[in-house]
Design a protein around this nucleic acid. Structure first.
Length: 550
RNA sequence: GGCCCCGUGGUCAAGCGGUUAAGACACCGCCCUUUCACGGCGGAGUCAUGGGUUCGAUUCCCGUCGGGGUCACCA
């Protein structure tokens, strides 16, 4: 009896691997095209770090005319969540990052290299496991989980390197006959890889991001097929990325230390190994220390958070791209109107250490992006957001033509207004432009200290309505009138004049217009008041000012 | 603990043997015919540390310290 008999006993129905090799041929792609993938567990949850990886993978594939696909790693049933795949697909879509190929929902997929869901690839993994067993490169292991723990405890107390290797790998040296007998006796088993490596030897690995990294060889006989018949991550990675013809594996750097194992697996399987790019995680300051953004502790770890907050997806992508290649920022400055896809992204220029997440910077990018949108775009986007997350705002926005006028204030010119960084700020930003919201709030404004005299305030407002305000004035005339009003009331018509002779005046034109601004909007900081008055219209302007006169 | 990676201003970072050590966000001041936002100008602030190598080290080597990762029938 030989390995072949053993292999046949374990996987009697498995196909020859040549079947799969032919079924999934080399991809016919242009020279230099890169094939990448995003391979999450179907938890439905996408971590910002996952999005980061996917963005990098997709960008590099797109840039080279390659393929970016979505594979679902569901070999651990405990992680499975209902509709998890759809959740992930939708998150990717929210960021305009749909894959070229792979899963498109929990049950559907596109592309010729599937199935793209690992639990559906059981036969494939078993074929390759069988192939390894036939060659004596893998073997059945009858050790129970408890035995495994015992071994580890012994190793730990003896301060020996833990794991299933060397003398600790009991089942490694079972003869074929012994193994067959045990199987026939009905003993449970799993399949382990028979590592040819030696811990005292080094292997060289050149990572695209991390550079040259030398490791001891792997000598662990890791599990490749679990008791449930599904593969472990390591084995599935080797088989899938080979068969799906992945050229570049872009993944989190927590995988870096398993590169020796993976290289060995590719080698023993007779596969050409892909190139690896291990990405540093996105971190967060946690009293003194740094740690990865945590799903449990940090809401901003979830990609859904950005959607809920109404942060434009482009801002998130640009921010992430900037962490990936800091030269992006300079490029963006030089090319403010180009699409981010035109940026010449370099995988090997990525930072080797993890960046601290900077929400302030993200929001700044959001502000810039929104400032470049037309009023129409701002309207559509904030309305879409409001429908899902803020019914009150949705209500305000129902009158589209008015909303467009409001969003049009100081927008569309060379120096557009930059005051909205996310859609959740819109309401706060525009609500005073609506009478129902405006009058909801208390009318007890605090006027500037410079003009605390109540009588003066009322006089200013009264005079303005009666003598100066004319809705048909152009901007210059409008402002000249406020100056004239100031002078008439004993205030300086020019700020400079006031600063030169502070004793000559009660205050200056700026203070006078602040009075009007507050009466009109209820706040000290607003966009251009002339435009606001235009949008509000004569009737509203006068009614608000009159209400403010005591 | 073993193995591996990393350490330039508050943050992201360029630079990789000789630089006044870029730039962005944040911060401060001034200017921009009224506020705020924008924009302009200016400012403060950094090469973890100790040894080497070198005419010269932020750049190269070693140690220390600090941070991170990994050591599952989880991915």
């Amino acid at each position: 009896m030989d390995y072949k008999d053993l292999a046949n006993l374990i996987f009697p129905d498995a196909k020859e691997i040549s079947y799969y090799e032919e079924k999934y041929p080399e991809r016919n792609l242009p020279e230099g095209a890169v094939v990448t993938r995003f391979a999450p567990s179907p938890t439905g949850f996408v971590h910002i770090g996952g999005l980061y990886q996917a963005l990098v993978a997709r960008t590099i594939a797109q840039k080279t005319g390659g393929v970016f696909f979505l594979r679902v790693e569901d070999t651990d049933q405990k992680r499975e969540v209902e509709n998890g795949v759809t959740g992930i697909v939708n998150s990717l879509k929210d960021f305009d990052m749909a894959p070229d190929e792979g899963m498109i929902s929990d049950t559907e997929e596109i592309g010729n290299y599937g199935p793209y869901k690992q639990s559906l690839r059981r036969d494939i993994y078993q074929a390759y496991a069988k192939y390894l067993i036939e060659q004596g490169k893998a073997y059945p292991c009858f050790c129970t989980v408890e035995e495994g723990e015992e071994i580890r405890q012994k190793q730990e107390s003896a301060k020996i390197r833990p794991g299933y290797y060397g003398v600790w790998a009991k089942c490694r040296n079972l003869t074929v006959e012994e193994a067959i007998q045990k199987i026939k006796n009905g003993e449970n088993y799993i399949i382990r890889f028979k590592s040819p490596g030696r811990e005292d030897k080094k292997i060289k690995h050149k990572d695209i991001i991390k550079g040259n990294v030398d490791f001891p060889e792997n000598d662990q006989d890791i599990v490749i097929i679990k008791a449930d018949g599904l593969p472990t991550y390591h084995f599935a990675h080797a088989v899938d990325d080979h068969l799906m013809r992945t050229t570049h594996v872009i993944r989190a750097d927590e995988w870096l230390s398993s590169v020796p194992l993976h290289l060995q697996l590719f080698q023993e399987l007779g596969f050409k190994a892909p190139k690896y790019a291990h990405i540093s995680p996105i971190m967060k300051n946690d009293n003194g220390g740094k740690r990865k953004l945590s799903k449990r502790k940090d809401p901003e770890a979830a990609v859904s958070y950005y959607k809920e907050q109404g942060i434009p997806y482009e801002a998130v992508k640009e921010y992430l791209l900037n962490i990936a290649n800091s030269t992006f920022e300079n490029w963006r400055r030089a090319n403010p109107d180009k699409k981010m896809e035109e940026f010449d992204f370099q995988l090997n220029k990525m930072s080797v250490s993890g960046a601290l997440f900077d929400m302030v910077k993200l929001l700044d990018i959001g502000k810039t992006i929104i400032s470049k949108m037309t009023a129409e775009e701002v309207y559509e986007r904030s309305y879409e957001w409001a429908k899902e997350y803020d019914l009150d705002l949705e209500d305000l926005l129902k009158d589209k033509s008015y909303a467009l006028k409001v969003f049009g204030i100081e927008r569309g010119n060379k120096k557009p207004r930059k005051d909205i960084s996310k859609w959740s700020e819109v309401k706060e930003n525009i609500e005073y432009m609506y009478d129902n919201k405006f009058f909801e709030k208390s009318q007890n404004y605090s006027y500037p200290e410079a003009i605390s005299n109540k009588e003066d305030i009322s006089k200013i407002l009264k005079l303005y309505i009666e003598k100066y305000y004319d809705e048909n004035d152009d901007k210059q005339t409008w402002f000249d009138k406020i100056k004239a009003l100031s002078v008439e009331m004993g205030y300086a018509g020019e700020v400079k004049e006031f600063k030169a002779n502070p004793d000559k005046y009660k205050a200056h034109v700026g203070d006078v217009s602040t009075v009007i601004r507050i009466a009109l909007t209820g706040r000290t900081n607003t966009p251009d008041m002339y435009e606001i008055m235009k949008v509000l219209g004569k009737e509203t302007v006068i009614s608000r000012l009159e209400k403010a006169i005591k």
